[in-house]
Amino acid sequence: MSDYTEKIQVRQVTDIHSNWSEQGDEAPGKFSFQLVLDNGAEERVIRPTSEDADVLMDLFAAGESLYFDLGRGVLLFRDIT
């Protein structure tokens, strides 16, 4: 990797894959989102609570574009309508 790409700390989220997994009989399931960054240059998985997953789904739909700060683990939503 070049010095330039190693310094990039914020990448655009270009695709999102969602997942729900069973946690056992009568136990609540768990959600996760796989964030594909810069068309596959990197990936991150986040595991929100069910309440946070619901809010994230709304924000994913409402934002014009989405970025992920690798150093801080923060999602950045642009132009939310």
Rank of each mutant, 00 (worst) to 15 (best):
D3L: 11
Y4T: 11
T5L: 14
E6M: 06
K7L: 13
K7F: 07
I8Y: 07
Q9S: 12
Q9A: 10
Q9W: 08
Q9G: 08
V10D: 01
V10T: 13
V10Q: 09
R11C: 08
Q12D: 07
Q12P: 02
V13W: 04
T14C: 13
T14I: 06
I16V: 15
I16N: 05
I16M: 02
H17L: 11
S18N: 12
S18F: 12
N19A: 15
W20H: 11
W20F: 13
S21N: 08
E22C: 06
Q23P: 02
Q23Y: 02
Q23L: 03
G24I: 07
G24W: 10
G24R: 09
D25T: 13
E26H: 04
E26Q: 12
A27Y: 15
P28A: 06
G29I: 04
G29T: 05
K30I: 09
S32Y: 05
S32D: 12
F33D: 15
Q34G: 01
Q34V: 14
D38R: 09
N39V: 05
N39F: 09
G40K: 03
A41L: 15
E43G: 08
E43M: 15
E43D: 14
R44Q: 12
R44V: 02
V45F: 04
I46V: 08
I46G: 06
R47C: 07
T49N: 13
T49A: 13
S50W: 09
E51K: 04
D52S: 05
D52E: 14
A53S: 06
D54Q: 03
D54C: 00
D54Y: 00
V55C: 05
L56A: 08
L56F: 11
M57L: 07
M57P: 00
M57E: 10
D58R: 02
D58Q: 08
L59Y: 13
L59T: 02
L59A: 07
L59N: 10
F60N: 09
F60L: 04
F60V: 01
A61Y: 15
G63K: 13
G63A: 15
G63H: 14
E64R: 14
S65G: 07
L66H: 15
Y67K: 10
Y67R: 12
Y67T: 00
Y67G: 00
Y67E: 15
Y67W: 14
F68D: 06
F68L: 06
F68K: 02
F68I: 08
D69R: 03
L70G: 05
L70W: 03
G71D: 14
R72F: 01
G73W: 00
G73V: 00
V74W: 10
L75S: 05
L75C: 09
L76A: 05
L76V: 15
L76C: 08
L76G: 05
F77H: 02
F77T: 00
R78F: 08
R78D: 07
D79F: 04
D79I: 01
D79Y: 01
I80R: 10
